[in-house]
């Protein structure tokens, strides 16, 4: 079963060296779960200041600056994992460094037919 682990947090919470440490720890976690066959993908995201939102309405393209919604905690990265069940996914989520400062939201992934293989 695939789970998307969405990592939310205050994007100003980490300073430069903390961010570096967070990347190192996340990379180690990714390597470790890779060896258990749980890893599918993971990436940090640039802050919401770099976000662009796109909408198509009546055939017209609306492109705006900024994220979909202004919130106190922002989406800052993700892990896509393969886990046996929710408890296993929770086990990985608790080890994501930002779980200690922000929130990791776990969403089960719907598998639909016809998507190209990753």
């Amino acid at each position: 079963m695939k789970y998307m682990l969405l990592i939310y947090g205050d994007e100003t919470a980490l300073n430069e060296s903390e961010r570096e440490a967070c990347y190192v720890e996340s990379t180690q976690l990714a390597q470790e779960i890779k060896s258990k066959g749980q890893y599918l993908a993971a990436n940090p995201l640039y802050p919401t200041a770099s976000a662009t939102s796109v909408r198509m309405r009546e055939g017209k393209r609306l492109v705006t600056d900024g994220p979909f919604a202004e919130t106190r905690e922002q989406l800052g990265g993700y892990f896509l994992i393969d886990a046996r069940d929710l408890d296993e996914a929770i086990g990985v989520a608790t080890r994501i460094p930002m779980a200690r400062k922000g929130t990791v939201e776990i969403r089960p992934v719907i598998e639909i037919a016809g998507l190209p293989a990753g």
Binding site: L86, D87, I106
Partner: peptide, 14 residues
């Protein structure tokens, strides 16, 4: 069902 909450006694750690 959807999030696949397991039907098991948790591990000693949990």
């Amino acid at each position: 069902r959807d999030a696949r909450i397991p039907y098991q006694v948790p591990s000693p750690a949990e």
